[in-house]
């Protein structure tokens, strides 16, 4: 029915367009119906197309979520299987991990050097670095920088 409307109106619109002059266009009996139809079909088509896109990307999103979930589930079962196979007590695994983390902290001299240089340049005073720990929670430095960059002009 919508299509029929468009087809019917197109003739009138073409005829009005052919008149060229704005005053002549206005005097055409079909002027207002054509104007209304143009505006209406316009907004409807925009909504229709974007609604189709919503549906498709919603579908895509759900598919990806399901795929992701099954992947994660698979990875988890694999992990569990490995843990079981190792048959070592859980506590041992944990201490190992902590040791690894500690190693990461102390070993990376390059990073320590970079951080102390940055602090030195910033403070211009004597200081001692007691510990450097990686922060895992909250917003990362880059996204904080991104947000302040994006909101600065106000």
């Amino acid at each position: 029915m919508n299509n029929a409307l468009i087809l019917m109106s197109e003739n009138a619109i073409d005829r009005i367009q052919g008149l060229g002059d704005a005053k002549l266009q206005l005097s055409d009996p079909d002027y207002w119906s054509s104007v209304g139809i143009i505006a209406l079909t316009g907004i409807l088509v925009v909504f229709l197309i974007l609604a189709i896109l919503i549906f498709i990307f919603w579908l895509m999103g759900t598919i990806f979520k399901i795929v992701d979930k099954s992947k994660k589930a698979r990875a988890e079962t694999k992990k569990k299987a490995e843990q079981n196979a190792a048959s070592a007590p859980v506590a041992a695994v944990q201490t190992e991990q902590i040791e690894e983390a500690a190693e990461e902290e102390s070993d990376d001299e390059e990073i320590v050097a970079v951080i102390s240089a940055a602090i030195a340049a910033y403070t211009e005073q004597g200081f001692t670095i007691k510990s450097i720990r990686k922060r895992s929670s909250a917003r990362s430095a880059w996204s904080t920088a991104g947000i302040s960059e994006n909101t600065r002009p106000f």
């Binding site: 925009v46 909504f47 974007l50 609604a51 896109l53 999103g61």
Partner: peptide, 9 residues
């Protein structure tokens, strides 16, 4: 994807 609706409105 619901944002599309706002972009249309």
């Amino acid at each position: 994807p619901k944002s599309f609706l706002l972009g249309a409105a």
